[in-house]
């Protein structure tokens, strides 16, 4: 079973040289820590940065320079800053190649819910609806089951949707799965020490298992 860093590490392997990547809040942010040397990617932050760098050195934080999670960040050499309309322009026009974000639920046809729990939590969708409606390549980083032990990979989402038929791949603490165009979670890899049986038990939506499922290689 993977911890949060493990999930981030596995997703980092999906990040290819030359990509422009938008990382959501939470586990997706951690992915930046595991992108191998020699893989040149540009991180986009939807509040208006291309070429986002690491957190500033203590004492050098700049109130005018934050990421979409409102954390202080830095700019790398060759970075650019721009306004919010242009930022979502490059997202909508699919110049941003890869979106990695968290989810509360994903359905077997690729619907995603991650912005609202009616009566409990209403924080808003931020840029998530724009990202999932336009991005060609969307990877979801999430826990396979919720705190009550219920599957978050469902036939249909119960929570209000963020987008429809958009998720391509999911990485959880148990598995890597992709979503087939005709629907269904196809199991690609098992987390170290996790059995296919465990994944079956944790997946409520249609799970497709073809042949031997390899254990994922992380390091």
């Amino acid at each position: 079973m993977l911890d949060k860093n493990g999930i981030a590490k596995r997703i980092a392997k999906e990040v290819k040289d030359g990509m422009y990547v938008n990382l959501g809040i939470g586990i997706p942010t951690l992915v930046a820590n595991f992108i191998p040397d020699g893989v040149n990617v540009v991180l986009q932050s939807e509040n208006g940065i291309l070429g986002m760098g690491p957190f500033p050195i203590e004492g050098e934080e700049d109130a005018d320079l934050i990421n979409a999670g409102k954390q202080t960040v830095t700019l790398l050499k060759g970075s650019s800053v721009f306004d919010s309309a242009m930022s979502f322009g490059m997202i909508r026009s699919q110049k941003v190649n890869l979106t990695i974000l968290g989810a509360m639920e994903v359905s077997e046809n690729g619907d995603i819910a991650n912005w609202k729990i009616p009566g409990k939590m209403v924080k808003g969708m931020g840029g998530a609806m724009d990202l999932v409606a336009s991005a060609k390549n969307i990877i979801v980083a999430m826990q396979h089951v919720n705190k009550a032990g219920e599957s978050k990979l469902l036939p249909n989402c119960d929570l209000p949707l963020t987008g429809i038929r958009c998720v391509k791949k999911i990485v959880t603490e148990l598995a890597v799965l992709d979503i087939l165009p005709e629907g269904g979670f196809r199991l690609l890899e098992r987390a170290p020490g996790v059995s296919v049986e465990q994944i079956k038990n944790a997946t409520l939506g249609k799970l497709i298992i073809e042949g031997e499922i390899p254990e994922m290689i992380i390091d």
Binding site: I57, E58, E61, A63, Q71, T72
Partner: peptide
């Protein structure tokens, strides 16, 4: 005031 919502830094 230019308040910072989340100061996130790394050590030198």
């Amino acid at each position: 005031e230019k308040r910072i919502e989340q100061v996130t830094v790394r050590k030198k």
